[in-house]
């Protein structure tokens, strides 16, 4: 068996080890490749930045722990941005598995800015039904969520006296790992109630969002870890936060992981064509 044949039959454990080393290395010793800010992330940032203080940003937490490394930094950066500008934050979710993640963000981020639960931030929780939930929230949020995630009646929360339906919300970001997600907010929230929607999605599903960006249905897009990192950079650049930026830190690892895959594809193709030519 020649060199190229052996290369084609390389033990996958070697590939796994190379990948593991190159992903871990930048986490221990950052390469400092730097992250800019793309127009899609800037559009989301500008939309949140234009919400008047005292008004509400709605964030739909539509992801599970599997997508946490990509999407959770978006949630945290969005909340920090809103709180720094005294914008209130209303959270809800279309994914049951996202409930604990939203709770974590509420309990960890709000105290950083001295924000009070019920006055500056409310987490509605999760309800089954997707389209029925969004349509119901369009008519009256209390019809869908009579109590919040923690069991407080919505009538007892000062913030919810001013936010009664989707039309009271100037902008929302749906952080989605799939379906249900931003497309449902567009279908029912945007088209029916004129809700302005931005999206945060995993890198693999970013391609699905582009048709909605061009039509203007989506105000902006945070695509994958890169989108999260861009938003973190924007938030820090405007002095809204000085906290650690997990997505920016992870971008070096992602860069090397992409390089590994590309190099492997090139080697695999060269080996394939060389062995095929010899076979003829």
């Amino acid at each position: 068996m020649g060199f190229w044949e052996r290369l084609l039959k390389i033990d996958r454990k070697i590939i796994f080890i190379v990948m593991a080393v190159l992903v871990l290395f930048p986490l221990l010793k950052p390469l400092g490749l730097g992250v800019g800010s793309g127009p899609r992330a800037k559009a989301v940032f500008d939309a949140v930045d234009s919400i008047p203080p005292g008004k509400t940003l709605l964030i739909s937490v539509d992801f599970d722990p599997a997508s946490m490394p990509e999407l959770y930094p978006m949630l945290v950066a969005l909340m920090r941005h809103a709180f720094a500008r005294d914008v209130r934050v209303l959270l809800c979710g279309l994914w049951i598995t996202g409930a604990g993640l939203a709770d974590k963000a509420v309990t960890e981020i709000a105290p950083e800015y001295g924000k009070e639960y019920g006055r500056d931030v409310v987490y509605l929780g999760w309800k089954a039904g997707v389209d029925a939930v969004i349509l119901g929230m369009g008519e009256n949020i209390k019809n869908v969520f009579s109590v919040d995630y923690y069991g407080h009646p919505l009538d007892s929360l000062p913030m919810m006296q001013e936010v009664t339906r989707l039309r009271d919300i100037p902008f929302m970001v749906a952080i989605s790992a799939g379906t249900p997600g931003f497309s449902d907010w567009l279908l029912y929230g945007h088209s029916r109630y004129g809700l302005r929607v931005g999206a945060g999605v995993t890198a693999v599903s970013a391609a699905d969002a582009y048709p909605y960006l061009q039509t203007g249905q989506l105000t902006g897009l945070l695509a994958g870890m890169k989108g999260a990192a861009e938003y973190e950079v924007l938030v820090q650049r405007h002095n809204y936060s000085k906290a650690y930026m997990p997505a920016v830190a992870a971008m070096d690892s992602q860069s090397l992981a992409h390089i590994v895959i590309l190099v492997l594809v090139v080697i695999g193709n060269i080996a394939f064509f060389v062995t095929r030519k010899r076979g003829r």
């Binding site: 490749l33 890169k226 971008m251 992602q254 090397l256 992409h258 590309l262």
Partner: peptide, 8 residues
């Protein structure tokens, strides 16, 4: 893939 990461 390259364009979506800083190394690109």
């Amino acid at each position: 893939m390259l364009g979506m990461v800083p190394v690109g």
